[in-house]
Design a binder for these strands. Structure first.
Lengths: 148, 148
DNA sequence: CTTGTTTGGTGCGATTTCGTATTATATTAG
DNA sequence: CTAATATAATACGAAATCGCACCAAACAAG
């Protein structure tokens, strides 16, 4: 019988917060010196939604201020992982494109992490992870829509 | 048939990262000016594990450098939410205690969020959340143990 | 006891995050 | 067309995070 009191749902978010922290530490330990999780998140995002996004679109996707995204993109650009070029359709904005190096770093990092996950599967029933994925996805979609 | 390829598990952590970000925004919008999620996390932690912890114990629990915890505790202390007192059993360290105000802020915040969750339950089948809680808990315990 | 090592906490500087204000371009109203 | 408003990006400063170095207390070896 599932626990229905509000504190139970609060606990779900607490668990999610802790797991996020632990998984971020795992990710950052595998990134090249100077790159942190937000850098990787942007690379990953650009693959998932297609690159050529504007900085403000990316900032909104991550719910961070546009000034933070300016800074993150500067770091990626300085390392040659993205190209930031003027937007031909709007003189105010720019568009962000992944470079070869950007694609490669993202792919290599995921490959490395996949190997870690493989080891993880010896200790954890991965079908349980697969099972919660749709719930997390729906929760994310709902919360994403709920932000005014 | 659940998706077994490694990228599927990667997606689980991606979803968790996004949900953490969105839920943190919700939390911080309800905290008093100047308090951010880490402050609340410490208050909450001290209730869950009993207060009287040392700063380094708290830092380890959150996987953050001890210098970061010094800073966070300073903020909580300046607002009268915790008392940081010398540790009678070890002259090097201190112990952190919740004040009345600290207990109250934590309780009030949770009460406010519980009301939000209640509204949330009109849009989302909360039994699904309750169902994933044990999986998240076990995953957190496993990852927590796996960090060297 | 004395010395060397470990541990808890903090000072300091570098980087990140983010709010505010500013600039440049686009859009809308008249 | 001109003026007013809105939007994209950045400069700048404040606060947060964190690595490194340091100090003080505890612990261990002799």
């Amino acid at each position: 019988m599932p626990d229905q009191n509000p504190a139970a749902f609060f606990e779900v978010f607490t668990e999610i917060g802790i797991i996020e922290q632990l998984s971020r530490a795992v990710l950052e330990a595998r990134l090249p010196k100077g790159l942190i999780a937000p850098h990787f998140a942007v690379l990953n995002h650009l693959v998932r939604v297609q690159d050529g996004r504007t900085p403000i679109e990316i900032a909104r996707a991550f719910q961070v201020p546009k000034t933070s995204m300016t800074h993150t993109l500067k770091g990626l650009e300085a390392r040659g992982l993205v190209d930031v070029r003027p937007n031909a359709e709007d003189g105010r904005s720019k568009r962000v494109w992944l470079t070869k190096a950007g694609h490669a770093l993202r792919a290599d990092t995921i490959a490395t992490l996949a190997a870690e996950f493989a080891k993880l599967s010896e200790e954890f029933d991965v079908t349980r992870l697969a099972d919660i994925r749709p719930v997390l996805r729906d929760l994310r979609i709902m919360m994403d829509a709920a932000r005014d």
